[in-house]
Design a protein around this nucleic acid. Structure first.
Lengths: 343, 343
DNA sequence: ATAAAATTTTTACGCGCGTAAATGACTTGG
DNA sequence: CCAAGTCATTTACGCGCGTAAAAATTTTAT
């Protein structure tokens, strides 16, 4: 394959004996031409190795086949995994995903969305920063482009939100910790930007209320995305000061827990659910490293695939309906308890 | 800002009182117009909020401002960090980086490169899979597009290669381990696809030769990218069988080491450099989690920034020279020893 | 076999911008 | 103030493909 090079679709049309408009239709959607024509085209494609000019293709299309995916930070395994799942779902639907990470910088969220706009994407999937996002901007953005939010919600932003039901997950793990030992206290960031953190805080308060135990919450100072480092230094300090009133600590997310585990290890504290252990630590999110921590981390697993597929399906529905619907849908998935060695 | 919406550059030209060709020049390179004109344009830009059509812009350009960055797997923190550094360097140079991950699937490397081709990028930075890459294809690719390889080399692929000097790094850490305790044995994947692994193997053999100690190498069975899992299961089995003849194990990379540390912990083996410890474990790459393992991992830090910046600079030189040069350059950076608690 | 439906071909135009050449206006230094 | 140089404007064309409409062809149903 690939003897000749073609400068444009016309040349390829001549060589393959198929008219240019038909070829154009085929490249838009291979299903849209007759089976026999499709085979003829694909045979010619194998023989000649031609690819339409991406830019010319998209210039005049009403709508492109590109889907923008914007996440706060690809270095965070959670966003890494979920954007990978979303990417996959887009490719399977015949779309062309474009993943953009804001690298933990709030202002880059807006820059990424702006950059996407000039690509005229068919739709955008956005995991907003949360507190620090430009909410008005996002709401406005959704009026121009089909937009589905995931992980973190913005009131009235886009067509829909798909995320996790933090009340269910926190209730689940609090209940487990309570039944299997002392009731937990809660370890979180002092000023979390992610709204899930706030919901988890609230959910913890309510869960402790329900089981009728006093609520203890400990806040780690620190800014940025180095959650492990903050968990280690701040949590380590609290451990050293014996600040925690119970032997069970529920961390707002796995990354904090990983830092806390590291601090506990350094201080010679035995962590685990066995009788010879003096501390139990649990996390939330089932970070890919949670199974390799020492001890392995008991946590809540989010269903990445379900969230990804629902977000993508919702977006496609919005794209196909061709109009912004008035009813905004919110889908929350439950998480499942992963019992490992740390609690 | 942003009262009116413009359908094209002509409308914006009329409204701003600047001719379209001048605007076109400005968007190509803001420095290419006179300072006073530039200020007028930027003032108008603030007032009106216009962005040129990305597709029309690139269609007729000799060369676009896009740089393709292709890595085997963004889920691997090493590639995550280095692609982030490269992305940054490209943005700073006024280019538009496009990061594509092959998600650990060999065939996607070629698909990504093909997809990039139809974007007519100014250049491409590629970290090939190695053994499983289509080497002939990559060599050929470099004839069409300015191409710089990093991390893993392909003989005669592209303009240049930028990577790490595994001989220096392995020698460094072997020497350290030898001076601070028993000489190490080596723990690696049985059939690594990454050529760095092969070089490290070779470097280990030579380093042990130099210090005059017998060379022991242990190979973990397993395929794919779950290095931690493989390190834990295979390494754990070897630990349980007391297969290692020395108390010091040098792992081919940090991800294997993290798995091995996890296995050692589960078996109640105390790992570290202190007298109360029975095992020392060292890694290679300074994985972001290495400082949070239990104990924290002694390892070799690669200079991501240096590699990224050199790769980008080399690519830009190739782009500017407008012709494939005959001399292929190879740049190798040394690593530095990071002494933590595990060895 | 024939009519109706589905698909392809022919023809033609336009998208938004890059780019080139000629012309015109401005800046700089003496 | 003028000449030379620099930069902006005017004019005009083309890029490669999307897309629309009408004509021609093929397929399907009757």
């Amino acid at each position: 394959m690939g003897q000749r090079k073609f400068r444009n679709m016309d040349e390829f049309a001549k060589a393959s004996g198929i008219s240019r408009p038909t070829l154009s239709k085929y490249f838009n959607d291979p299903e849209s031409v007759r089976q026999s024509t499709r085979q003829r085209i694909e045979k010619a494609l194998k023989q000649y190795d031609y690819r339409p000019n991406f830019y010319a293709m998209n210039q005049n299309r009403r709508t492109t086949k590109s889907i923008g995916i914007v996440v706060p930070n690809l270095a965070d395994p959670f966003f890494n995994e979920i954007s990978r799942a979303i990417e996959l779902a887009c490719v399977e639907a015949g779309y062309n995903p474009i993943v953009l990470s804001s690298h933990g910088r709030t202002h880059r969220e807006r820059e990424n969305l702006e950059a996407l706009k000039s690509l005229r994407p068919a739709g955008v999937l956005l995991a907003p920063f949360g507190r620090e996002s430009d909410e008005a901007y996002i709401r406005n953005y959704g009026k121009d482009v089909p937009l589905v939010l995931f992980d973190a919600d913005v009131v009235n932003g886009g067509e829909a939100f798909v995320g996790i039901d933090n009340y269910q997950t926190i209730d689940l793990i609090v209940k487990y910790l309570f039944r299997s030992g002392e009731p937990p206290c809660f370890f979180e960031m002092e000023t979390p930007s992610n709204p899930n953190a706030n919901k988890r805080h609230q959910a913890f308060v309510e869960a402790m209320d329900r089981i009728g135990h006093p609520t203890h919450i400990f806040k780690a100072k620190g800014e940025g995305w180095d959650f492990e480092e903050i968990g280690k230094s701040e949590g380590g300090r609290m451990l050293a000061e014996s600040a925690f009133p119970t032997n069970t600590i529920l961390c707002s997310n796995d990354r904090l827990a990983i830092g806390l585990l590291s601090a506990a290890y350094q201080q010679g504290i035995r962590v685990g659910h066995g009788p010879e252990c003096s501390l139990r630590i649990a996390g939330h999110d089932d970070h890919p490293f949670s199974r390799f921590t020492c001890p392995s981390l008991t946590t809540i697993a989010q269903d990445y695939t379900a969230i990804a597929e629902t977000a993508v399906a919702t977006l496609f529905k919005a794209i196909e309906s061709e109009q912004r619907s008035n009813e905004r849908s919110i889908t929350l998935f439950g998480g499942s308890l992963v019992m490992r060695d740390s609690a």
